[in-house]
Structures are given as C-alpha cells and as structure tokens.
Design a protein around this nucleic acid. Sequence first.
DNA 1: TCTGGGGTCCTAGGACCC
DNA 2: TCTGGGGTCCTAGGACCC
Length: 420
Amino acid sequence: MFALVDCNNFYASCERLFRPDLKHTPIVVLSNNDGCIIARSAEVKALNIKMAQPVFKLRHIIQQHGIVCFSSNYPLYADLSARVMCTLEELACEVEVYSIDEAFLNLKGFEKNIDLNAFALQIKNTVLKNVGLPVCVGIAPTKTLAKLANHGAKMYKATNGVVYLDSPLRIKKLLALVTVDKVWGVGRKISKKLNDIGIYSALDLANANPKHMRKLFSVNIEKTVSELNGTACLALEEVPNTKQQIICSRSFSERVLDYQSMREAICSYTVRAIEKLRLEKQHAKVITISLRTSSLSIHDKQYANSITGKLQIPSDDTRDFTELASQLLTKIWRDGYRYAKAGVMISDFYDQVIHQKDLFEDNTQKTRNPNLMKVLDEINQSGIGKVSFAAEGLQKGWSMRQQFLSPAYTTRWKDLAKVW
DNA sequence: TCTGGGGTCCTAGGACCC
DNA sequence: TCTGGGGTCCTAGGACCC
C-alpha cells in the first residue's frame, strides 16, 4: 500500500499561512519575473482562472475581484516543505519526497494492523496542526493509483480530503470517473493519441492490452496500465538519485541588447549553477549556454542558439566555468537582437576528484586551490554578507522582477513575523 | 510593455565493434 | 533469387513531471 500526500494549492497556502487577514481573499502566486500564474487559492480556481495564464492579460479580472498577487518566494516554500516532510517522517518510516509539495509513504502491511481511513485523516490533521498547511491524502495499492486517489480526494468535497481505495470495486469506480489525461504519466500528447483510439477514461486505459500500449507508446505506459490494475511496478525511492544536470536559466525583466549585459547574466547564472554543483558535492566537465529572443514578440527578429564546451578536467571551481562560458558566448552572440532569456546547463558529473588525464592532450587547465570556493560558500551562507564575482556585474538591470515578494518569514531573522 | 524554471526518462538512429 | 547476427555507445528529440 502507498499513500500520496499532496499539499493543497501549496504556494498560495504558504503565503496565506503568514497572512491570516487573507484567509478568504482570492490570492495567486506568480512565476519568476511576475509573468504567469503558477498557484491559485480555491477562490481563484472558482473564478475559472487557469494555471500558467500570463498575468498582464488578467489585470482587469484581478482588479475586479480584488485578487492579491505574490511573487514566488522559494526560500519560504522550501522551508515549509521541509517542515511538512519532517512531520510525514514521524508518521511513517519510509517516505519518498517526490516534489516540493508531495510525498509518497510506503504503508506496506499497515492495512493489517490499522484502519487506513483513520490513518489518512491522522496524516491530514497532523500536518495541519504542526505546519498549518492543508493536504489531501490518497491511499492505494500502487503509486499510480495513490496519485489518482489523491486526485479524487481533491476533486470531491465529500471525501473530506482523504480517499482510501480499499477494494477493486472502489478502484474501478474511481477509474471510470476520471479522464485518462489525469493519470500520472499521461500528458497532453499521449492522451490525445489515446482518445484517437477510443480510450477516454482511466478505466479504458486500465482495460487496454499492456503489450499493445508498449508498442504504441513506451515501456512507461505499459507500466502505467499494470499499476492501474493494482500491480505495483514503481517502488518507493527513499534516497534521491544523484543529479545528472543542473540548470540555471531566466527570462530577463527587460530585453537585453548589449553584449556586456548578456555576459554578466551568463556569468551570474554560471555562478549560481556551480554553487549548486558544490552543494551536490560533485565535479563536472561540461557546460552549455543558451540565449534566445522571445518567440512571443512576433515583431522582433528571432534568434536562438546554444553551445556546449568541455573542461579538460572535472571541476567545481566557479572560475573554470565562468571563463569557459565567456569564451563560448563570443561564438554565439549576435548583435542587433532583443534577447529575452538566457541559460546555463552543467552536465557530465564526477563524484571523485581523482581523474584520469589524457596522455596526449596538452593540458592547460589551471590547478585551483579549493579553499577559495570553500571560503566563498561559507561567507555567502553565513547570512552576514555576500561576495560575488566581478563578472556578474553590479547593476543587473536584467535581473528578474519580483514586485510582490513576501518576506522570508522563516529563514531570515529580520523578516520574522510580528504579533501585536 | 508585459507570457516560468528545473528536472527525468525513453526511443530511434547512426557510428562503430567483432 | 538469395548477402549475418549481436552488441555498445552516443546524441537528438520528444514526452512526461512538478
């Protein structure tokens, strides 16, 4: 048996937690740059405002209904997420943190000893009491079914936020009620293709021939079919896999026109990415940088390009990567475009410092003293101050817009909530 | 004027090996 | 007329997830 615990309207609920005055006010959380809507409170969903809608198109309706906007505040959400996960780990010993707002619990054998309906309620109430965030709980024999049970708990008010699929009959009933695109692993493209061959509900998919589905789609969909029929193919993964790539990319708050600004942006993203690399305790060899104009600005000349470069020896020293990134940028930079976005991707990771050098390669890469990066990270994580690389620039006119940012209530001393 | 960011996995096809 | 079989590695592209 698996449980899936998923926070309701997670980002919106996080913001509301520290603003009890907004308990019944419709609120939304915006993507980076305050561009799109990425989380909505129940009142906003009721207004039929969809996910990922650009906010500038909704100005009118936002004003009309007094919707309160928040820029995304990831330090806050990450901290509250950690609190939710801690609470779950006290309730079950095997927990897989699946995303920032949801986790699978392994409840193998639980059903023999306790009432899982009561347990689901206990999870819901404990998280609400300990952290203050509302969650829904779905329990079922496989992860895919637990996801669907959770979906049911969110969809139907009468469930009180918990659904336990304790019998084949209940499973069948729910499968018949939900459309196939709601199934975990079935996205837009695949559900359209499924519709074309007469598969509309989750039940239709469960009844399909698994081998045929594999042929038509992939091994993943074959597994999904089995999971829908109660055969677990996906195990709980307690230890997170080591990362294979690190991406740092952003849209600019205003279009970038000059080379110098672009270079600063690329270097800043590189600095961030390599910081993350050191947090992962990894070294890497490959960096890809990319830049693009906005395909939505139809009157602009369009240009997009990317380029990949490789160090000779894996490194976690920022200087190696900013140097390489700057060289790469000269090759794909073109004057005369209105750039909207740039990004950096790090890949080809090595977890040991020991590296087999190439006998025939002329090795020119500098050997760096690792202490500098260590000190740098210590200062930047100390909360006392920040140091940065000159290559990142000082003005950063392109850096993202966060007009409605809430305080970091739980992670910064000066932002602590005050109670009068 | 203004439209997010960060990931994973699978497959097909090409190059190559014996 | 008929031209093997089995395998690895890499990359690009596509699909999915939150």
